[in-house]
Amino acid sequence: MKQSTKPIIVALAIGMISLSGCATVQYGDAGSAKALSTEFGSSDLQQIGGAMVDSLLVFPPLVELTTARRPILGIDMVKNKTMQHIDTESITDSIRAKLIRSGKFRFIDRTTDEQTLQELKFQQEGGLVDKKNAIAPGQQFGAEYLLTSNFSEIRQKEGSVTDVYYKFTMTLKNLKTGILEWSDEKEIRKVFKRGTFGG
C-alpha cells in the first residue's frame, strides 16, 4: 500500500510545478492595458495615435496658428522600422481621422490622385459635362505642412528576459520655410519574462 502512493505524490509534484510558473509580460510604464505579448497590439496603436494627436493639438504655436484659420496638411505614410509586420496604413488613417475630427486642420489626400485625374479628364473631354460646370485641372491647393512619422523598435534579449522598446516619432514640417514646427515622440516598453516552469 505504501508503495502505491509514490506515483501519486510524484504526479502531484509535477502538477504543482506546472501550475506555479507562467510567462509574464509587463509594460515598463505601468498603468496601461494588460499586455499579452511583446508584440505591438491594437491597444498600443490606439494609445500612440491618441497621444500624438493630443500633443500636436495643445502645442502653443500650433494652437495660435489654428485659431485664425485651418492650415492644409499632407500626411506621409508612417515608416515601419520595427521587427513586426504592422499595418502602418491603419495607423496613418487613425491619426489623420483624429486630426480632421479636431476641426483645426484640412488635409490633402494624394492617394486618390489618379482617380481625380481620370474624373477631371472625363469632365473636360468626355462631352457629357457642361463646360461651365466642369472642373478645370490646376486649381487644387497644395499642402502647407507635411506630417511624417517613424516607428522603430529596439529588442534586447538577456537570458529569459526580452525587453522591447517601441518608439514613435512624429514631425510637422513647414513646406515653404523648411522649418520643423513641431515634433514629439511616444515610447512603449514591454518586458517579457519567460516562465521557469509551465506546460
Binding site: 509535477i14 510545478i17 506546472s18 510558473g21 507562467c22 510567462a23 505579448s37 529569459s160 517579457f192 519567460r194 516562465g195 521557469t196 516552469f197 509551465g198 506546460g199
Partner: peptide
C-alpha cells in the same frame, strides 16, 4: 517555443 517556459511539461 521561445515564449514557452524554460522547463515545460512537453
Amino acid at each position: 517555443n521561445d515564449q514557452k517556459a524554460l522547463v515545460s511539461a512537453s
